[in-house]
Simulated scan of single mutants.
Amino acid sequence: MAVTPLAALHRKLFDETSGVKFAVLKDRLIKKFGETDRVAVLDILMAYARDGQLLHWRSSLVNEIVKLMEPQELPDFFNWAVTMPDLAYWGIDGLLKSRGKDAYDSVVALAMSSDLRLDVRAKAVKSLAMLSRQPFDAGLSPDPGHWKADSLPLGDVLAWQRAGYPDGAGHAPPATHASLEAPETVLEKAAARLAKKLAAKRKKKHDPARPSNWLVIASPADLAAIDARWTLPSHYRDFLARFSPLRVYIDSQRYFQGLHLYGASELLKAQHGYSYNPVDQEAIANWPAHYVVIADAGADPYCLDLSAIAGGDAPVYTAEHGRGAWEFARHADSFADFLKEVAQA
């Protein structure tokens, strides 16, 4: 009897001893059969998570299972996974996805267990915060692996448990300008298009405790600090005031290294390493004094030329870093054109 392609891939996955080749096989399995044979793929992944020979991959596969499963599926597997030290981190998300609020007692117990690794306990708190909309993760890194033991809000978690696990109000979204919903000017239309693009990104991945990929109203303090440093083109200054990028990162074919578009809260610090040396606390001699870095793609800067302001705007120049000397080339005739490009990327 002929072996089916899925069965052949199953066998290869379990026989593979190279982590690099295993990753290729795993991706092929999910991409080729994840939709058409989802249950069979889940069975293969769960079997490997239990008994596979590449131990470091078993934990990663638990995360793949969480992404592929439907809510209320696989409770027995995740009840087991959270008891395994190497699988518990991602197993927590699976337990909550499979059992919902019925898993709260179990996950709180994981958070309280001093026998577990700190990152697992922190993950338990973070995942509880995400599902319950309680602010347990307020002010903490979006990656619970970076949390410190003394930052775990265990008292708040226990108080929430005693109160019967009420849902919280969640984190308030950042304040945005009304013109994003009803744009009229060229700048507003470009910003609105970018905001729509960022909203689509947030649907795929978003941490309410540390919002990213938003265009927000800048704080007066940030704008005052910027105004004390430069006289910016009015169009860009208006953009920062009303549509300041908040942790905006564009990953696209045009910006294959990823584009970080700076907001008002980070613009001053973003000059470090380009025009300013923060260690020596002095200007860097070979940097054009009239260039302000407004974005970077893999550390390649995009700069407004303040010496060429006209009609409230200025051209954008870029250069490759690491070449010994900056060789700038004109990238866009204006910030408005650059913003349109970013919105379309």
Rank of each mutant, 00 (worst) to 15 (best):
D150Y: 06
L198H: 12
L187P: 04
A129K: 00
D156Q: 14
A159F: 00
E188H: 02
S179D: 08
R162H: 08
A192D: 06
H146A: 10
A178C: 04
A192S: 15
A138K: 01
P183M: 06
Y165Q: 00
Q134S: 01
L180T: 05
W147R: 00
K196L: 11
S151F: 01
A149W: 02
D167L: 13
A182T: 14
S127A: 03
V125L: 00
P166S: 04
H146G: 09
A172I: 03
T185C: 10
A163K: 11
G170C: 02
D156L: 14
L180M: 11
S151A: 15
D150P: 05
K196G: 13
R162L: 10
R133D: 09
S127Y: 05
G145H: 10
S151G: 09
G145I: 04
A129I: 11
P144Y: 01
S141P: 05
A190D: 05
D137W: 01
R162N: 12
K196V: 11
S132Y: 00
G155K: 08
Q161R: 15
A169E: 15
P135Q: 02
A182N: 10
P166V: 01
G139Y: 01
P183H: 03
V186H: 14
L154I: 03
W147Q: 03
K197M: 12
D156K: 14
A192H: 09
H146F: 15
P142E: 09
E188N: 07
A182V: 10
A149C: 07
L152V: 03
K148C: 07
V186N: 14
A163Q: 15
P144Q: 10
G168E: 05
D150S: 10
E188K: 01
L128Y: 04
D137H: 12
A175F: 04
Q161H: 06
H171F: 15
P142N: 10
L128H: 02
W147I: 11
A190Q: 12
P144H: 07
V125A: 03
L131K: 04
A195P: 06
A199S: 15
K197R: 15
A199N: 09
K148P: 04
A175M: 13
M130F: 03
A192F: 03
R133F: 02
Q161F: 06
L140W: 00
D156V: 07
V125P: 00
D167R: 11
S127E: 12
G170P: 05
A182F: 06
W147H: 05
Q161N: 02
A129N: 03
P153T: 14
S141Q: 09
P144L: 00
R193N: 14
P183Y: 01
L154P: 09
A195E: 11
V157S: 04
R193A: 10
L194R: 10
A172M: 06
Q161I: 05
P144G: 09
T176E: 14
K196D: 14
R133L: 07
S141M: 04
P174I: 01
A190V: 04
H146S: 11
S127D: 06
G139R: 02
S151D: 12
G155A: 13
R133Y: 01
A190E: 04
T176N: 04
P183K: 09
G164N: 07
F136V: 01
G170M: 03
K197A: 09
V157W: 00
S179R: 08
